[in-house]
């Protein structure tokens, strides 16, 4: 099965890259962009066939490597 992981900066953590993107959008004429937060998207192909077990494994992967939980949150979606 496939796991999709979104890693995003926690609220309250300054995202200078998101700010730069916001400014760039403004200078391109896209008005009304109030905020931009940049993150990472990671796709995993897993041999596991049990969705609950897959989620549990990916959860551990996020905590140990994929996200730095000091500054980042993660969201997992498992697809058959």
């Amino acid at each position: 099965m496939k796991a999709k992981v979104h890693v995003t900066l926690k609220n309250g953590v300054l995202d200078p890259q998101g700010k730069a993107i916001q400014h760039a959008l403004g200078s391109l004429g896209f008005s009304g962009v109030d905020d931009v937060r940049q993150g990472k998207y990671i796709e995993l192909d897993l041999a596991e066939t049990d969705a609950a077990k897959a989620r549990e494994a990916v959860e551990r992967m996020c905590k140990e490597l994929l996200a730095n939980t000091v500054i980042e949150n993660y969201a997992i979606s498992i697809e058959g």
Binding site: L14, P16, Q17, A20, N68, V70, I71
Partner: peptide
């Protein structure tokens, strides 16, 4: 060392990029 958990906190992209 911060990523390994030997020191607290994290090091992010410089404020002015």
């Amino acid at each position: 060392l911060t990523e390994a958990g030997l020191l607290p906190g994290a090091l992010m992209r410089n404020r002015d990029l």
